[in-house]
């Protein structure tokens, strides 16, 4: 891997880290267990390692954003997570913040492209 690729990889990882939380919160209107969430997110283009997602779910639960329940009816016991009331509130605010970030970023990137086009 070239140095540029390595750097891009590292920066991309940092970039993704923050988006995972919003991604997870967006999918927990209905109860999901960890691995089903991995599949759902992956189907929608967000690849999360289980080793990252499971601890994250637990942290969000500890912060009071998620509620959890063990389901032992099926073949193997699974822990289902669901947005709590506080979680819904936090997600709604995060969503707005995210939209404004996207808007700002688009503006910034458009500008830089225009400048580059003008120069080059």
């Amino acid at each position: 891997m070239s140095e540029v690729d390595e750097l891009v990889d590292k920066l991309l990882q940092e970039l993704r880290r923050g988006t995972i939380t919003i991604g997870v919160l967006s999918q927990l209107d209905k109860p999901q267990y960890g691995y089903s969430l991995v599949s759902i997110l992956s189907d929608k283009g967000m690849h999360v390692e289980p080793g990252t997602l499971y601890p994250l779910l637990r942290r969000l639960e500890k912060q009071g954003l998620l509620e959890s329940k063990w389901d032992t009816n099926e073949g193997r016991p699974r822990k289902y997570y669901l947005l709590s009331r506080k979680g819904k509130e936090v997600f709604a605010q995060l969503k707005n913040e995210w939209k404004s970030i996207v808007g700002n970023m688009e503006g910034l990137l458009r500008e830089s492209e225009e400048t580059n086009d003008g120069n080059g």
Partner: peptide, 20 residues
Amino acid sequence: GQRIDIAEELRGLIEDMLEE
């Protein structure tokens, strides 16, 4: 305090992953 719960969850995860 978290060991039993996390162990259970991990066991389920690994089985899910293997199955898939």
